[in-house]
Amino acid sequence: MLMYNYIVKQLVKKSFGMVNERRFDELVNGMALNIRHSFAGDHALGGVRHDQAAVRAWLGRLSRIMPTLHITIERVDVKGLPHNTLAIVRWTATATLANGEPYLNKGVHFITLKWGKAINIDVYEDTLAVFNGLEAQFQAGIAEAHAPQIIS
């Protein structure tokens, strides 16, 4: 069991590295076809997606709105067996906004995996920090920061 937990932790760390490196196709291809992805908040990044295409579109939006976003993993905890695994990931996100101001957010991902593929991702973060960051980006001319949610 310890080896399995270690492997899942490495898989999760690799996935966050793909986000930082904008390797979204590779990341999404490693998810279940009917992946469920939710991001808390009533804004352009909020909402729930139910398939790979919508998650890929959401990641593209994230990179256009926050092009310098970098996520640092603080801790990964893994529970369960290969057919039903929960990875809890605590992280810190940083970026430089278009107006030159720093962006900082802390949050957690709850990732459910089945046989090594993510089937459910719930993201909880400081929604006020996200809202304020989106507002700053919109004011700096990034119109997509006020776009309707990507939902499916």
Rank of each mutant, 00 (worst) to 15 (best):
M1A: 14
M1F: 12
L11S: 14
V12N: 02
V12T: 05
V12L: 09
K13H: 14
S15V: 08
S15M: 15
S15L: 11
F16S: 09
G17W: 12
G17M: 12
V19L: 14
N20W: 09
R23F: 12
F24H: 11
F24P: 07
D25Y: 12
E26Q: 06
E26G: 02
E26D: 07
L27R: 10
V28Q: 01
V28N: 01
N29T: 07
N29Q: 15
G30F: 05
A32W: 00
A32L: 00
L33W: 11
N34D: 13
N34W: 03
H37D: 15
F39Q: 10
G41H: 05
G41M: 01
G41I: 02
G47M: 06
G47Q: 02
G47E: 05
V48S: 12
R49V: 07
H50T: 11
Q52L: 03
Q52M: 00
Q52C: 01
A53N: 10
A54R: 05
V55S: 04
V55Y: 04
R56C: 00
W58E: 09
L59G: 07
R61N: 12
S63C: 11
I65Q: 10
I65V: 15
I65M: 10
M66Y: 15
M66S: 07
T68S: 12
H70A: 14
I71M: 09
I71W: 10
I71V: 15
I73G: 03
E74V: 03
V76A: 02
V76G: 00
V78Y: 00
K79E: 12
K79W: 14
G80C: 00
L81K: 08
L81G: 08
H83W: 11
N84C: 07
T85E: 01
L86S: 06
I88D: 02
I88L: 08
R90T: 15
W91M: 09
T94Y: 05
T94S: 09
T94N: 10
L97H: 05
L97C: 04
N99E: 14
N99P: 13
G100F: 07
G100K: 00
E101F: 04
P102Q: 11
Y103V: 05
L104I: 13
G107R: 05
V108E: 07
H109E: 08
F110Q: 06
I111G: 00
T112A: 06
T112Y: 08
L113F: 13
K114R: 13
K114H: 10
K117G: 04
K117A: 07
K117Q: 12
A118P: 03
I119N: 03
I121Q: 03
Y124N: 12
D126F: 08
T127M: 05
T127G: 02
L128A: 13
V130I: 12
F131C: 07
N132C: 09
E135V: 11
E135T: 14
A136P: 01
A136E: 06
F138N: 09
A140W: 05
G141L: 06
E144W: 14
E144S: 15
A145M: 04
H146C: 06
H146A: 13
A147V: 11
A147L: 09
S152M: 01
S152C: 04
S152K: 01
